[in-house]
Design a protein around this nucleic acid. Structure first.
Lengths: 212, 212
DNA sequence: AAGAACATACTAAACGTTCAGTATGGCCGC
DNA sequence: GCGGCCATACTGAACGTTTAGTATGTTCTT
């Protein structure tokens, strides 16, 4: 047997989960049939049901796996940084990596939208995740305020939501049109825009001497 | 006839399309069965297949309807405005309205994500739409540059993508967690952040005298 | 009475899930 | 070193359900 065979035979469950993650990230939940995962893994449906209770278990484990990896990575990379602005930039870079070099972010974004009003369990997982994410960013912003780096008149929670939104929206445009959308530059500039906004003086009574 | 019956009996096709739009916007394409639309409309499948060829025709008409309305509304409201900054703000307000008072934006965002690598026809529709949207915003930014309102050292196309991304990302967070996410404020602040960024002097060599 | 506007009843395919059976590899007494 | 013994890791077929789509019957309108 020349071996078109398959991957490392040790821990086949993990192997199947990886294939499932790829499928869910690319096609979403509904459009990923058990057969599709099986075919992609070079096995039959039975193999999947040997290792997993049902399709939902596959899904939830996929999500928890990628979500956990992403969040651990964020905490681990941001924790040692003392400058909040640099923390924000690092966050942007991690998201970029996990949106291009791996499919962490794509899995999250895709399933998060699909879950809306459709898969309550998933919906809760992602809602909680987003709340954690916003709380994490908000705390970074609070640090920046206390250091005097950031304006004190911004709502940290709101600002965190704005950051999270920018990242997600850019990612979606990239997934949808990678040929004509430069995710790296967009994310970098968005970070700088965000930091510039946080760093400026309270911008009241701007635009006084307007031309029109 | 006292008539608890149903909506305006005139143009039942339009009626059914409206119901379909609501379902697609809320549940997406795959999770919306023909029976679900029929039940929501108070009819049976027969009625739907009498007026529409198949599910895909229903979908494409739904999308084109809402997309057309949205784009016409944008052009119509923005056209008479001479100040590009005010145009951007208006764009933000329209998106807010179409994300909260109606389901235009939700339909677009939901189906756009679901279509990724799954429904090629839909994918094209949305990819083209996003390109038009970015081109439209980019042109507003160009105007601002020529008026001297905006910095000339930003890539208009890139900036347009950043704006589009911010809007989408905020909307998703709102759909997912309306109780704890204030879309109006987030959109307003994001517009101001964006305009502030466009309006400032070229921000080179900032952060020279840093504390840390 | 005839056609438009449906409802009802059905077909066919896809899909998730179950299950009986099989191949393979390690282990253990002998 | 070999045959029984068992666990792991599957295969392949079948079942029940869901769902898009169709065929045909029914009612209302004019």
């Amino acid at each position: 047997m020349a071996a078109p065979a398959e991957r490392s035979r040790e821990n086949p469950r993990r192997e199947l989960l990886n294939v499932a993650i790829d499928c869910f990230a690319k096609y979403g939940y509904a459009a990923t049939s058990i057969d599709r995962i099986a075919k992609a893994a070079g096995v039959t449906k039975g193999a999947l049901y040997y290792h997993f209770k049902d399709k939902e278990e596959l899904l939830l484990e996929s999500v928890k796996h990628r979500l956990g990896q992403f969040e651990r990575r964020v905490v681990q990379e941001v924790a040692p940084i003392t400058d909040p602005a640099e923390s924000i930039r690092t966050l942007g870079r991690i998201c970029h990596q996990h949106a291009t070099k791996s499919n962490h972010r794509r899995l999250i974004v895709t399933l998060m939208v699909e879950a809306l009003d459709t898969y309550p369990a998933l919906e809760r997982v992602f809602r909680d995740m987003m709340r954690r994410f916003r709380a994490f960013v908000a705390q970074l912003i609070e640090q920046g305020k206390q250091r005097g780096d950031f304006r004190s008149d911004v709502d940290s929670q709101l600002a965190a939501g704005m950051f999270a939104g920018a990242v997600m929206g850019l990612e979606i445009q990239y997934y949808q049109d990678p040929a004509s959308f430069d995710l790296r530059r967009a994310l970098e500039e968005s970070c700088e825009q965000f930091l510039g906004w946080l760093g400026r003086q309270a911008p009241r009574a701007r635009w006084k001497q307007r031309r029109n």
